[in-house]
Write a protein that binds this DNA or RNA. Sequence first.
RNA 1: GGGGAGAUACCAAAGUGGCCAACUGGGGCAGACUGUAACUCUGCUGGCGUAUGCCUUCGGAGGUUCGAAUCCUCCUCUCCCCA
Length: 302
Amino acid sequence: MKKQLICLIGPTSVGKTEHAINLAKELNTEILSCDSRQIYKEMRIGTAVPEPSQLESVKHHFIATESIHNYYSVYQFELDALQKSAELFKKYDKLVLTGGSGLYLNALIYGMDDIPDPDPEIRRNLEIRLQKEGLESLRFDLKRLDPEYYAEVDLRNPKRVMRGLEVCLTTGQTFSHYRNRSARERPFAHKIICLDRERSSLHSRINKRVDLMVEAGLIEEVKSLFPHRHLNALKTVGYRELFEAFDGKLSIEEAIELIKRNTRRYARRQITWNKRYKKAQWFDAAEADNLIALTKDYLNQE
RNA sequence: GGGGAGAUACCAAAGUGGCCAACUGGGGCAGACUGUAACUCUGCUGGCGUAUGCCUUCGGAGGUUCGAAUCCUCCUCUCCCCA
């Protein structure tokens, strides 16, 4: 029997953590997290890392394992998760994967193209150029250096334009040359389960969770990270808004409201992303009682 | 009791005779996205499955006009000031 990775995904606050733990217990296995922010050990409250008791009840991987001060990316995650899963599959037939970062999930189940790391110097220069010369100028270069990618990218999206350019500039090859986007063979099968729930219910859970984070000390956590606000890891819902409040641009109350709003938006983007998995099985997370049964049925279908 | 201001779509708020189904912002919805991805970007938001099309809107009821959210009359409600 082929090893199986059971991917439990869904928007933030939908109830993934709890369900994943129940499922992992039921299957007697461990959990891999695919979350680009819970992986940072400095950001616990604002990223809703599982409770210590939850982390104890089932072994979790890739939670609070990296530092915001180190460079980390999807590609890194692909390598780490591949290695970890291979190790765990020696012991288990099934593993549970859960988390909110769609691209991280893709990296593990389909793989990322092998593209050299960008030269940090080049990346920095591009950022400066964007500031000074504007997007137009970067587009101009991209058109010249990689017309193929130029024809595909969203030209209004500075991040994507810069990404193409930085690869061209550091490697001397076109970005398109590296970007095959073909799925890799994996030594395990995967099943995707998408959790969702009525929008109003999701929103009230988000609001409540943000309030709980504040009670749990979110403001202090963010304050302690204030000196590092420029780091990429801290460009995150829940942190960014409070940084603005510390700057005096917002009141704390306004920042909290904004966190709620931005979390709702984030959740919506996650749902949109999840719709790309055409073979995924969708469940309503509100049916907590029989979710495990439904899931087991689904897994047994084959 | 007297004087003044105002009622616009889910909310806030422009518009003060035709270019208005109605600026803009918020909220909401939808979408894109292979190395910063909780990032970044895009579209829609009165109804009619699509529409250079039709229908119903700008507190209510009438009226003026070829034509009104915009002008007039009355009514209802809200707010502010004086008593």
